[in-house]
Design a protein around this nucleic acid. Sequence first.
DNA 1: TGAAATGTTGGGGCG
DNA 2: ACGCCCCAACATTTC
Length: 481
Amino acid sequence: MPRPVLVLFRNDLRLADNPALHAATESGAPVACAFILDDETPGRWRMGGASRWWLHHSLAALSTSLKERGVRLILRRGRFDDEAHTLAGELNARAVYWNRSFEPAPASADKSLGARLTASGIEAHGFNASLLFDPAAIKTGSGTGFRVFTPFWRACLAAPAPRLPLPAPAHLNAAEHASASLSLEALKLLPVKPDWAHGLRASWTPGEAGARDRLASFLDGALGHYADMRDRPDIDGTSRLSAHLHFGEISARSVWHAVQHATAVSPSLERNAAKFLAELGWREFSAHLLFHTPDLPERNLRGEFDAFPWSDDLKALSIWQKGQTGIPILDAGMRELWQTGTMHNRVRMIAASFLVKHLLIDWRRGAEWFWDTLVDADLANNSASWQWVAGCGADAAPYFRIFNPALQGEKFDPDGAYVRRFVPELANVPARHIHAPWDAPESVLSQAGVVLGKTYPHPCMDLAIGRKRALEAFSELKKAA
DNA sequence: TGAAATGTTGGGGCG
DNA sequence: ACGCCCCAACATTTC
């Protein structure tokens, strides 16, 4: 039997448009496939709870579609480079194929694996499967990385267009081997006591088929009014593809070309498509920032924020996490997150702004919470976006741009449907008062069965005072600088 | 991908 | 008919 080749799956849990799998298949050698759960590479952010739930189901789906093609997915646990090197040896593999990561710790694991394989006389083949554009290839005139989105995205659009997606291999030539695999259950990715995942199960279908379906319904539906409705949490106005993209169940290239195709068929989609593709652009931009600034998840991009007088009010942090701030749009968002593993993007901005500005809590505490609770938790997107909101990031919202959650609620959830859905205590409050129940006449509240401080909390802080305090903290910072 | 404060304008009520 | 005031509506500035 000829020596096999090994394909390592990572955040590319798909068969279609998978460059590593495709190249391995094209090599003509028998193929073995593996996934390594890596909680051990130093410096790697340990995957959060909601992501683990997603990963479990995504691996189950991948394992099934590989099995249908006669290939058993080998599951291992450990350091990516160690385990992969060992496994390649066990299999007597001729070559190893995998899609590279652009996150700092996994990227150095890639480098170390490549070197060790080569030293052992095994070919190493790395590919870019996750991004539309190679973050190292997009450069400013002076040869550095971009720090501002608009010129970055202009440069991407001027670069050669993302290539067409590769087909899923029609047939896999499975390597015969007896290598041991952990069972999926043994990876212990699912919550046990308590099982908090029922809201996730009701909201999502992880896996390649689920991703494809989600894209198809987006193209059919929300894309048509994306530009106008994407900011409305009460409406199905977004793609909801972020977690599928994060785990690579569908490639950004496939999404890109599907949108281009839809626009070619109906040119009236143009404006909406451009807006949506720019959102993929923000995903690229975040990855680009992390690639060029490996300490993005830990350090303020603008160093002057290192002196910011953050509060360590754990009580306030906990109220925010639980969705008990007494400010309806915030509580709705934080409860949506806890129940479903996602939060509408507009509400993420409102919730993040409130934590960082009204509560004066370090953005890293917020990023950690999102990391653990979001099914789409992504190191680059999460870090870059929190820094953006906090005002300490690249091309960031200026610190003094402070969201008023009551006004944001009125503007983007005008009927209060989003609040009613996730904050049932307020279900009967009329739209006019639902975003600021503390200002509602007593009679309106009692008619709606609401007693502030009893059935729903008093606001944890006065919005005007919070705003003023944030501005004062910021002006102290500027004075110190 | 803000909100609040301040400034400007113009229509209408009214003495 | 006129000037004065009020204030909504919009624009600009400031944080």
